[in-house]
């Protein structure tokens, strides 16, 4: 803190700030911005550990039972996954763009970038919904609820084998034609799949909510080149959500 700031403190007490967006315990906007940025990075750090637990479960089960994952991945639609990756990457671009627009005092650009980001987020969730509903409809649940139907087993080209194919109603007749060799504990793949993508989806929803709030503030004209911290921090969070997906896509959809 320089001497001038000291004097101004002494002269006016604690209410010498005229900008309500600058909290009273910070020296200036730069100080507030740097502190906020440190805070959001710490938050992202804990997010990483949070997802880390799931990645740990993933690596252990895949490392020990790769065949389960190979078979499980056949149930996933790689094309939809790839499209979703592109959608999310594009939303990251627009999120980064929103920061640039705020820095340049470009209010229209800022609003447009945020709207595009939110739009992509909804697009992502829409595609996810298509994927989920297809699976759940065909009995591809997690853990104990995993009872895939005949259609989806055929659709997924699961290896022919010795385990009887379940009938239309899901019941298993030991004398039925033996074509589907379901790997033991195949449901574990879907437990992990639904946990990872579900938790990621919750983060997308949270991101949408935060972005709606940022949008409201942007329309109100809160942000300018001096004060744009919230835009930047939300974008950082959004990039992290993208980052997690960058790994989820090959780990779940691209299994050889």
């Amino acid at each position: 803190m320089d001497a001038a700031a000291h004097e101004s403190h002494d002269a006016h007490g604690h209410d010498h700030h005229h900008d309500p967006r600058l909290a009273h315990h910070f020296e200036d906007h730069q100080h507030q911005f740097d502190t906020g940025k440190l805070g959001i990075w710490l938050f992202l750090g804990q997010e990483l550990l949070f997802f880390g637990g799931l990645f740990c479960a993933y690596s252990i089960y895949r490392g020990l039972h790769p065949e389960v994952f190979e078979e499980g991945a056949k149930f996933l639609n790689t094309n939809l996954g790839a499209v979703n990756t592109v959608v999310l990457l594009f939303s990251s671009l627009t999120a980064a763009w929103s920061v640039r627009a705020a820095q340049l005092n470009n209010k229209k650009g800022l609003i447009l970038a945020i709207v595009l980001t939110i739009g992509c987020a909804f697009g992502f969730l829409g595609i996810k919904y298509v994927e989920y509903s297809h699976k759940l409809h065909e009995g591809v649940f997690w853990g104990q609820s995993f009872h895939p139907t005949r259609e989806i087993l055929e659709e997924a080209h699961v290896t022919p084998g010795v385990v009887p194919m379940p009938a239309e109603d899901g019941s298993v007749d030991p004398k039925a034609e033996k074509i589907a060799m379901l790997k033991p504990n195949l449901h574990t793949f879907f437990s992990i799949y639904f946990m990872m993508t579900g938790l990621h989806g919750i983060h997308v929803i949270a991101g949408i909510l935060v972005y709606l709030w940022i949008l409201r503030r942007a329309i109100r004209g809160d942000f300018n080149s001096e004060y744009y911290g919230p835009v930047d921090f939300t974008a950082l969070y959004w990039h992290l959500v993208d980052l997690v997906w960058i790994y989820l896509f090959p780990l779940l959809y691209l299994i050889h």
Partner: peptide, 20 residues
């Protein structure tokens, strides 16, 4: 900020590798 991120990555790597 980079250090925070790197430390977190290190934590995840540590967790996964030891448990694995």
């Amino acid at each position: 900020n980079f250090m925070i991120f790197a430390t977190s990555v290190l934590g995840v790597v540590l967790f996964i590798s030891i448990a694995f």
